Amino acid sequence: MNLTHCSKGTIALLCVAGLLAFAGTASAFTISAEGVPSDAAVGDEVTVTYTIDDPFTDTSNEWTLQGQTQLQDVSWTVTVLRAGSQVSQATYGGQNFSQALDIDNNGDQVTVELTGTTPEVENYTYQPEEQFRVASLTRVSGNNEEEFQNDTAHHYTADSREARQAIDDAQAAIDAAGGNSEAEQLLDSAVSSYENGNFQNAIDLAEQSQNTAQQAQQSQQTTQTLLLAGGALVVLLLLGGGGYYLYTQTQGDDYSKL
């Protein structure tokens, strides 16, 4: 009797464990990306690969994959695989592409390889920094559109990067000095020049701002040092005066005793 109850209990536990294991390994629509840059120089080549696993899980059996990018000289390569074997492959040019997917004749994985060059900066902004769209991917089913991936990156030229670094250095110097109105005004002018594309002027103003902030910090440190030295001198004088007073008092007492 006990063995029967034990066996039934064991079987029930095994069934629950099996269901949990199945639920834990159930497939789901997922997207991963490789090669997405955080920043890129204008004209640099960028190659990004997106992998969509289980493209028909938790969604329609028929949908359209669309891609967009701001990269230049673009090439998209869309590969459909089933169990690791290639089912189909298509190549698209231009900054947009669209490909229909169907569960009946498509696989269980889709890869999208995008190659292009970093675009020019149309509008320079110091904060927030200039961004361009590396790629966005959208799932379209009927009238429903869902953007499930959107990657952006900072783009720059050699001159704009140098100017931005100079401004960053000036801001750090101002922060270290605890703020300085003259340095801050120079920094504001540097940022304005940066956003107008006048990078050499931005660098010159930022360096002036940094120097002004550093001089202010040194002046503060010198003042603090002098104040500390003066305080120490006062303490020494007080100690010396107190000691002399005690000495004279002692000497006066000794003389009166005599």
Rank of each mutant, 00 (worst) to 15 (best):
N180S: 07
S160T: 00
E182C: 07
A166D: 02
S181H: 00
D168I: 14
S160K: 01
S189A: 15
L187I: 01
A170K: 12
E184S: 13
D169L: 13
D175G: 04
S181Y: 02
D175I: 09
S189V: 01
S189M: 07
A166Y: 09
Q165P: 05
A166Q: 08
A177K: 06
N180E: 04
A166E: 08
V191M: 05
A172I: 00
A172E: 07
Q171A: 02
D169N: 12
D188C: 04
D175V: 04
I174W: 13
E162F: 02
Y194K: 03
R161V: 01
N180M: 09
A170D: 05
R161W: 07
A176R: 12
D188Q: 13
S189N: 11
R164E: 02
S160I: 00
Q171N: 04
L187Q: 12
L186K: 14
A190T: 00
S193V: 01
G178N: 07
A166C: 10
E162H: 03
A183C: 09
A176G: 07
Q165D: 04
R164H: 10
S181V: 00
D175H: 05
D188H: 03
Q185A: 10
A163F: 04
E184L: 06
N180G: 06
E182L: 06
E162Q: 04
G178A: 10
Q171T: 01
A163K: 10
L186P: 09
Q165W: 11
L187R: 15
R161N: 09
D188I: 03
E162W: 01
I167R: 03
S189K: 14
A172D: 09
Q185N: 15
L186T: 04
D169H: 14
E182K: 15
S192M: 14
E162V: 02
Q185I: 11
E184F: 06
Q165M: 12
I174H: 12
E184I: 02
S160Q: 00
A170G: 10
A190G: 02
G178L: 09
A173M: 08
Q171V: 00
A163D: 01
A183W: 14
